[in-house]
């Protein structure tokens, strides 16, 4: 028996909106630790790892580890029917072939339940070791989204370089080139407007902008994004999910031609 009650149901809507373009079908894994997911895009170039810790739920009952195979676009359709302020409860029996989403309005005057068919999904889990990164950039998530969107109008790839000057996002295309440099800046009115660059070594990596733009669908979840870079390793683009977890996107760097 699984029963997860999330007071901030709107968070789950935002989580699904940030996943559904990258991944079609995925297994949600439920354990005592929390509600999690690891899935790759169809070309196995990008991966998303979601964790919503059990403590973040108002009620979290998971009698035994359970894996729920869901079509993310169908799940997003169902969650779209919840109000942004609704309390969302996810329910499933141990041997269930469906999952129930229950939506309660904040003043309890409307209660809806939606039942969605589950599916069997063969998923490959990758072991992702904890890594020390050469550079970690924390910046406003909206700024990062704007940069990725702007650069993708000019080129297909972005070179992200971190030096002591700051972080540079560069692209080139048929019409020309573009470079955007963001400097370390903590003298801001609000902490979420800061750009914090921690650099052990200079690093420069090339990534497909198509995936970066897909990751920025998570922008409504968090004011800040963390971009962790090391030579010859996938970049990690992380958004916090309130105080209860995170969504991390991994993208393999392109090999320099």
């Amino acid at each position: 028996m699984l029963e997860l009650r999330l007071v901030q149901g709107g968070l789950l809507k935002k989580v699904l909106d940030s996943l559904k373009d990258l991944v079609n079908d995925a297994n949600f894994d439920c354990s005592a630790t929390g509600f999690s997911l690891q899935a790759m895009d169809s070309s196995h170039v990008a991966l998303v790892a979601l964790l919503l810790r059990s403590e973040g739920f108002e009620h979290y009952r998971c009698d035994r580890n359970l894996s729920l195979g869901m079509n993310l676009s169908n799940m997003a359709k169902m969650l779209k029917c919840a109000g942004n302020d609704d309390i969302v409860t996810i329910k499933a029996d141990d041997a269930a072939d469906s999952v129930t989403f229950m939506f309660e309005s904040p003043n309890q005057d409307k209660i809806a339940d939606f039942d969605m068919k589950l599916m069997d999904i063969d998923s490959e889990h990758l072991g992702i070791p904890e890594a020390e990164f050469q550079a970690i950039v924390r910046m406003p998530s909206a700024e990062f989204a704007r940069i990725c969107k702007d650069l993708s109008t000019i080129g297909d790839t972005v070179v992200i370089s971190v030096t002591k000057e700051g972080v540079k996002f560069s692209t080139r295309g048929d019409i020309g080139t573009a470079n955007i440099v963001c400097r370390h800046n903590t003298s801001v009115d609000k902490p979420e407007e800061a750009t914090i660059i921690e650099m052990e070594e200079t690093v420069s990596l090339t990534f497909a902008l198509r995936y970066m733009n897909s990751f920025t669908k998570a922008t409504p979840l968090a004011n800040q994004v963390t971009i962790s870079l090391s030579s010859d390793l996938p970049v990690v683009v992380e958004y916090k999910v309130a105080e209860m977890g995170h969504i991390r996107f991994y993208l393999a760097p392109k090999i320099e031609e």
Binding site: H44, V45, L47, H125, L126, I128, P129, Y250, A252, E257
Partner: peptide
């Protein structure tokens, strides 16, 4: 594209 490796080039299958 040829210059785009897959994630399995970096992380092992569990």
């Amino acid at each position: 594209a040829d210059n785009q490796p897959r994630l399995s080039a970096f992380f092992a299958l569990k």
